[in-house]
Design a protein around this nucleic acid. Structure first.
Lengths: 333, 333
DNA sequence: CTGTTAGCGCCTTCAA
DNA sequence: TTGAAGGCGCTAACAG
């Protein structure tokens, strides 16, 4: 392939490179319409396409941001990313998405790769495993926004759910419907991942708010693979739970598998609710009652915040922004 | 932020830029270990990170490929993309994924944007709406691979499912289980999208193979929003279908909604099967019988093919590669 | 209104 | 074994 450059266009149109450049960048306030037309024609005939790489090099700005998501398998993540892409699209900014797969090492690689690619800023759903890196970027005042998870040791702007409240509205709802032995299952708490920890805490607080006893056999945070076993234990007690809160969509999936295997009927045998909306919540039988996150708003806000930071490099006060969950009552309670 | 460049490293290490460059690119065959150490130290102290943008400009190669997917909502697409990313990751190539949202205009924008970013090649799940563009790239011998859909007018390497066979194994399975009034529903056939057209055709052929009559009321390809209505019509006949094949996961979702609404029992009232695996196929009640695509292999193959094209620019014979579906029998038939 | 000049950060001969 | 020079394609002053 030939690789048409601006010089070719300039030659063909009989003008200098800079004139073509101005044309490309819509700075034709002072350009004769005749010149304009000649350039336009030349571009078309040559099938010229500006080289963004070269442009980025001079402008020191790529008009691209990176998103590093801890685990893209969460429905929530995909929705947030979608919203980020939309917001960036309207701002004429490109987005590169990378999935860290819950692996801090992968996360680190992606962050370094994206920075080497000179992305103008980063939205991160942190795995929590690269504190030093987060800190370093923060110190450099590199444009950065966290989503979904707080990294205590840093001071980066973070947007996330009011997780305690999510548990609370679910417990409230279950209690209002007469359930008293409420269980809670979530994925591993090992790395102290914010939403998991906070949701569990919210569960505990809400129980006590309703003067319900906290039964240590009724809650657990374990690796996905062990959720089935854990539930087995929970439900084989003499006095098993009458309802179950799933801490996130992955836990929900495991819980559904378990309930099916044991032929436990929802809600007759156990009421079932979950935090995080899933694509099959309506078609599932029974339709699932959910505490849903405003994923779209969260993504949009994250994008806007980052874009603002990219534009105004002065370091603003960072803050933690919480969004409220919504209770969607369906048939599983 | 300072923006450390190679010059800074060179100065600090007391060598010239080109020496640093050689170090960075692992060409230290003839470099004194003392020089090496000095450079290494300088890099660390300065926290130097090579600028890929600048590198790409000189090398005329970004080590990045683009993926433009017609609609990322299909589970199949996400799986293929995952496989592409894996394959590229091991080849040290970056991947930028864009979702055309079934919109040819968006697709065109993304393709042009990615090319402006100088990606080394493109894997496209074509919407089918930009024939001229596809052709142009093909003519330029720009590295290109299509996935999932054939564009008749071009001659681009394409990897996709043996769609006729997918329908066939499903019909065979239904017939073997005594079903005779087999219906078929899929999303809009308007743009003659390969998998939809071929799967419908496979359905028709298979019926005739089994000497079953083709009832015109028993199949349809309509927009997602109208699938419910269409099914309503199908099932309100005096002699309604006893089984239903969904042409893809989106059609399946609509079908499930419909069946639930009408309180039709699966498989007692209707047997249900679908092409394309979905995340909830096992936990659904009853678990869904599916003709599944080897998404991982398809993605891997696509990536390898493209990478090969990127490396060996000589135009190779393009071809159409078909993968066979797998029947996963569960409880819905 | 248009052209000249000087880089952006890096890589690649070619000499030394 | 290392360095100097030139250039990748584009933009940004500054002249003219």
């Amino acid at each position: 392939m030939k690789a048409v450059t601006m010089a070719d266009v300039a030659k063909k149109a009989n003008v200098s490179k800079s004139t073509v450049s101005q044309y490309i960048n819509n700075r034709y306030q002072y350009m004769s319409s005749e010149t304009k037309e000649r350039i336009e024609l030349a571009i078309k005939e040559l099938n010229y396409r500006p080289n963004y790489i070269a442009r980025s090099l001079t402008r020191k700005k790529t008009s691209t941001i990176g998103v590093v998501v801890a685990n893209i398998l969460h429905t929530f993540s995909t929705q947030v990313i979608r919203a980020i892409e939309d917001a960036c699209h309207t701002a004429n900014v490109h987005v590169i998405v990378c999935n860290a797969d819950d692996n801090p090492k992968k996360e680190r690689n992606y962050i370094e790769m994206l920075r080497a690619k000179q992305v103008d800023g980063l939205i991160i759903f942190p795995t929590g495993g690269n504190i030093d890196l987060y800190k370093k970027m923060d110190k450099e005042a590199y444009p950065l926004v966290f989503v979904d998870r707080i990294v205590e040791e840093t001071n980066v702007s973070t947007i996330l759910l009011d997780n305690m409240k999510a548990s609370e509205i679910l417990v409230d709802h279950l209690v209002a419907n007469g359930y008293k032995r409420i269980a809670f299952i979530t994925s591993s708490l090992e790395r102290r991942i914010t939403p998991r920890v906070e949701r569990l805490e919210g569960y505990k607080k809400s129980l006590s708010k309703h003067s319900l006893p906290l039964n240590d056999c009724y809650y657990a945070g374990v690796k996905k693979e062990e959720i089935g076993n854990e539930l087995e234990k929970m439900f084989s007690h003499s006095n098993p739970p009458d309802s179950l809160i799933c801490g996130n969509d992955l836990a929900l999936l495991e819980a559904l598998k378990f309930l099916k295997e044991k032929e436990l009927q929802v809600p007759a045998d156990v009421a079932l609710v979950s935090i995080d909306e899933v694509p099959y919540s309506e078609i599932f039988d029974p339709a699932l009652t959910i505490a849903s996150q405003p994923a779209f708003e969260i993504g949009k806000h994250a994008a806007e915040l980052l874009l603002e930071k990219v534009t105004n490099k002065e370091k603003k006060a960072n803050k933690i922004i919480r969004y409220s969950p919504t209770l969607i009552v369906r048939k599983s309670t």
